[in-house]
Design a protein around this nucleic acid. Structure first.
Lengths: 339, 339
DNA sequence: AGTACGAATGTGAGCGTTCACATTTTGCCT
DNA sequence: AGGCAAAATGTGAACGCTCACATTCGTACT
């Protein structure tokens, strides 16, 4: 028993591979092999070294390893929406996949400002991240974050405008189709559409998907799509407007849960009973909104976490040399509640 | 002009300090000095080296620097609420302060699972983060994440149960006081309280703060506090309940915006006109909820971003050897809307 | 007993920086 | 012109680890 045992007051401080080697009576190379399971070593030695490492609370400094390996086992996530409604689930999904690959993520908030974004990009490259995920907040294609970067990039939710980049997006048209199928299955035939501003790609695509899906059932949209804003107030207003000209409507597909909540309130306040007289379907599956609506909203979940997961997986693949460029579409699914 | 200029197809790849030195015709040490602005160097040399570095697109590999410096200029943020309502603003604030200190954050989602949390802690320590921020989602004190860790830790929002740790929390009692002041100033005298479950520290503290603030104005709470859940449904239900026994109530302080929204709906549906007959104040300043309520909610903003900012600043201080243990309280502020 | 060969372990270079110190250059004074 | 100090630059070690290769050890075969 050496005097080493006595005064180790501080935990996990400054224990290097050399300390372990000395204590175990072997060389540093042997310790490295023992701990990484590489090379040829007697089982007894391996076990002894491991035991000593545990005892000393040794953790290898990954930074030293990175320097040698030429990679850092980190990725950067740049989000444009300050960790908002869309970025968060994507991030969560991405973190899931990354953890599985022993990677960890740096987080940067771009705040939708190209200058900030470039600044963060520079910082990330300086830290030699192995790859970058760019998470957007709108489905409209965005300018690539940089040309000819030294690391792979995956665009999540908001695809890159360059089709040669790797992007993962939600299935906007499919969402409309799921909604229509549900409405039709529950007996609705006179279906209207209340959605966000026409300047948003998602509003247009959902509207287009809706038209197609209705056509497939030999149905026609009731009135024109009501384009407005992504707010409850607009949903309420549009619902009232809709009833004025089309009082026989029996289903409404809404561009988002927030709008749908406004629509349910508008319809209810106009004296209709839900879901008996009118069925309402939203998009987003935003728990807080969907569950607080009266009645709780049936809605299309766009699979944002899955987008995050797939983005991270594609990024890991690209880092390992198997890039899969192009646009990858993640299907959504219907969450049936009472509306 | 050497032949170097011609075929540099790939950008920013593998340019080391040695390349810059060679091209500039100086030694690596000189390049280091020139780029870091340290040591004594002729201005001309400094400028020339800088120019060459730019031309070659040289960025120092921070990992090499870290190895030498013994620190990584990174911190870890462990959040317990999967980037939810409370964690997000805190993170955003923290990122702000960190960026100012040339630091960057690793993000880990603990999912309120101690096992996951410990696992992430291990990963962070392995990467030799310079410090850790633990962001909670409830104001109840939490068990410290580890004892005798080799790096400083700051607890944000959810304080550590060990008072010797450094925690940054919101001013729960102050929030109640701000609410009362607003209600009284707008002429309310008969004030009730509808809030979340009694098992949450924040519900209790806000209720206690409310009692104190009312007493300071020689007022008494109308009825007992209505403890329930943090939901709209509870708010609606409790509002109806309240009117049944105390129809002369003219102000309600709600434990959260979500509850407040339910309360406004409940009061309105009972035939009262807001804000004429009853004033309502919430807590959280959750834009989506507060703005969608009818009328838009006056509410107390707990200053979550500021909590994040201060947490990061305290952490940076601690990293620099100026730890400031104890509980730091961040004041909130009132956001006046129409309710 | 001597050799040879495979298994186990040791050794040292090197990853890309920074820093302390050694060395060279410059400018100035006598 | 010679000498000297200060300014400018070069040099090499070090950070903590991994890897390729060198060395040692043990065992079985001739």
């Amino acid at each position: 028993m050496t005097d080493e045992t006595a005064p180790r007051a501080t935990t996990a401080r400054r224990v290097g591979i050399a300390d372990v080697a000395a204590r175990a009576g072997v060389s540093v190379g042997t310790v490295s092999k023992a701990l990484n399971g590489s090379g040829r070593l007697r089982d007894e030695t391996r076990a002894r070294v491991r035991a000593v490492a545990d005892e000393l609370g040794f953790t290898p400094i990954s930074v030293a390893r990175s320097l040698l390996a030429g990679r850092t086992f980190t990725v950067g996530i740049i989000t444009t929406d300050s960790y908002g409604r869309f970025g968060i689930p994507v991030m969560r999904g991405a973190e899931d996949s990354l953890a599985a690959g022993e990677m960890i993520a740096f987080l940067c908030d771009g705040r939708d400002d190209p200058i900030r974004e470039q600044h963060h990009l520079g910082k990330l490259l300086e830290r030699r991240v192995d790859g970058i995920i760019v998470a957007g907040r709108r489905t409209d294609p965005r300018r690539p974050i940089g040309a000819d970067l030294p690391v792979p990039v995956v665009y999540a939710f908001a695809p890159s405008s360059d089709p040669a980049d790797c992007s993962v997006v939600s299935d906007e048209r499919g969402a409309a189709q799921l909604a229509v199928e549900h409405l039709v299955k529950t007996g609705r035939r006179r279906i209207a559409h209340i959605t966000g501003p026409q300047s948003h790609a998602s509003a247009n695509e959902r509207a287009a998907g809706l038209a197609d899906a209705l056509a497939a059932h030999d149905l026609e949209l009731v009135g024109d799509p009501y384009f407005g804003s992504w707010t409850e107030a607009w949903g309420r207003f549009a619902a009232a407007q809709l009833l004025r000209t089309h009082e026989d409507v029996d289903g409404v597909f809404c561009g988002s849960d927030v709008i749908a909540r406004g629509v349910t309130d508008g319809l209810r306040e106009a004296g209709l009973s839900l879901p008996t007289q009118v069925g309402v379907v939203g998009v987003d599956n935003w728990g807080l909104v969907a569950e607080a609506a009266r009645p709780p909203l049936t809605t299309v979940d766009l699979g944002l976490e899955e987008i995050g997961r797939l983005s991270a997986e594609l990024l890991l693949d690209a880092i390992n040399g198997h890039a899969q460029p192009g646009v990858h579409v993640v299907p959504g699914h219907l969450v049936v509640r009472e509306s």
